[in-house]
Nucleic acid binder design. Structure first.
Lengths: 207, 207, 207, 207
DNA sequence: CATGAATGAGAATTCATTCAT
DNA sequence: AATGAATGAATTCTCATTCAT
């Protein structure tokens, strides 16, 4: 049956790939990209070096795949939630909150995005930047969809500020002791509030 | 002459160290930490491997020293300029502008701080964070020096937002084509404005 | 077939390991431990650096493994021959002769044991001493199995004397020109005789 | 005054050389030849690298000088004591005792001779062997001076046995805890006794 | 004579990737 | 497809020795 694409074999193949990818994400997050060796990944995934190279081009490729997957996951989460909100200002606020919360719930991926994928190859840098830019684009679009609500001149800079602010706070939050740190939702709200006030137009004082 | 502590030998030693450090900064900034090898550094500095290890414990140590030096330079620039400004809000604005401008004028060090020192050892991470925290502390102190001017509840988060915003914009600016990008001073102003509006208390509309 | 524990892969692995070990023994014996480099070993074994570190922890580890193997070989040779001899004095004599002859037949290992493994790390020293002590213990046991035959007070010292004597003569013999030196068997006999006379009780002259 | 060879300057020079030599002996004995670096020696001697090479050809040279000095010291001690003893058997006994005791009193040099100078260059090996041979020669001469007293056929082998026995016991003694080990004099006596009995002719039982 | 900074050859070791089984 | 042994290029770092001051 040539028609069925997803045979049992392919499913097993996909499962193995998943295992390797998850192992890599876990280890990259824990030890960083360079300190994680391919043998470490295949041991963690209970697989073998040969298999690894059957599923990924090379070590960097896994990181790249992981980042792309994360980018898609973020995009999905964001687009879903943002379409429903008609108020542009609230959309900014909701966007920041959602992004923050989502990444806080996926701390390993977040760490990889923020810390571990920095300073590697140009290809990784590009994938990494694509995720940030995707966020910045979204913010920019929102701004431009209702300019009258915003007090911003350079929307590009504003968008970058918003994303930068969110990621820096997220990074610090990830480093904090999970037992004692402020709940993610609360921090997300504060960051959203900061950013919204930064960009919203303050109505002129009435007579 | 008891006064001369720095003999000719010591001066030469220090000069050699400087040469190595500058070469390392240049190369780290260009190729990244991992892609820069010790032979590359010593060739650039017209020195030798042996000398390198005479002046630095290992490759990571140079990066650490470079970061620490940058931290001190930033602290110096910031403290000088900020003491003179009595208005807390303006101090925030000036601080952001100064930080941004200073780093934009030292793009190699800025790149190392923002991009290349990420995801390395714990020791480097600590030095790197110390610089960011130093900035965050300064922002926080300013907030707390005149709370009535600010609309912020959690000053820690606000401080992190400000620093994150500045660094993200700076990072993007560094990546842009030097020939066509907006002048640093202008970008610095925009970032400062964003951050100030984010934190300042908007006076209640008088009846 | 549950019985076959050693798969073809494992056999090849073991063969490669053997090749490396033998090459190392040969070179250590020829040039000494420090003068032998890992590249030299892998070239001799027609293998590669990577393989070397796949089979051994580091350069010192090969030496350690070689010494341990030698220790076992000696133990095997000694135990086999000594169990059959009921007369304690003859057992001492036979032991010395056997040890000497065995090492004379394995001159590379003997050189490593006597000369090249001296003055290295504590770990090597321990392995080396374990072999000597194993011999000393054997001598001591023999003494203590039939005390009336021996004129020795301190059996520990006597045992050390015997081992020291044997190894010193062996060392000199190894250094001599193989073409002109006295046959090992003859030297072994002389050493055995020396040691036996040193320890045996001389019956009191009858009236 | 050209005639005076030992000027104050030369004395100081000699003193410096002595300092370096003693430092080297101490460190070689403690850490072994390879683990001792020239910087370690000059630091210990409160001197400088340059000075080191002013007094010695290279690192190996210090070891060689130390060994030669030790060889002379041993020769002096032995010759002095042995000339006075007319009985050849007692001379053997006294020789072994004296050698053992002398080295036990100079444990650092003893360690270097027995352990640390093994497995190095041919030149060192030669110096090292010269010391052992010097002892063996002495034993042999004694044997040959009064053959009727000895039951030995091959005096060379006997001499080597004696030296080997003494050094092995000495090595073990040096390794033992100084607080709990048997006094050197006692061990020396036991070794001497072992060796004497090994070589002396036992008079035929008279009718 | 003394100093110690500079040199650079040389060694150990790692690890991404390949490929025979 | 899966395995894991084998490869060897590449990198870090050490340390004996030299030599300008």
């Amino acid at each position: 049956m040539v028609y069925r694409r997803t045979t049992a074999t392919e499913e097993r193949r996909e499962a193995r790939r998943r295992l390797l990818l998850d192992a890599a994400i876990k280890l990259f997050s824990q030890h960083g990209f360079h300190a994680t060796t391919v043998p470490m990944i295949v041991t963690e995934a209970q697989s073998s070096t040969g298999s690894f190279y059957l599923h990924f081009q090379n070590k960097e490729d896994v990181l790249n795949v992981a980042l792309k997957e994360l980018g898609q996951a973020i995009a999905k989460v964001m687009s879903g939630l943002m379409r429903t909100q008609p108020d542009a200002l609230k959309r900014v606020s909701l966007g920041v909150e959602t992004l923050f919360t989502f990444l806080a719930q996926n701390p390993e991926q977040a760490r990889i995005l923020i810390v571990e994928s920095s300073g590697l190859s140009a290809r990784i840098e590009q994938t990494r930047r694509a995720i940030l830019m995707q966020q910045e684009d979204q913010v920019r679009e929102t701004h431009e969809s209702a300019p009258s609500l915003f007090a911003i001149e350079n929307t590009t800079i504003a968008a970058r500020c918003i994303v930068g602010a969110a990621f820096e706070v997220l990074y610090c939050w990830l480093e904090e002791d999970p037992k004692t740190r402020i709940p993610a939702a609360e921090v997300a709200k504060a960051v959203a509030q900061f950013n919204v006030q930064a960009v919203k137009r303050i109505p002129a004082k009435p007579r």
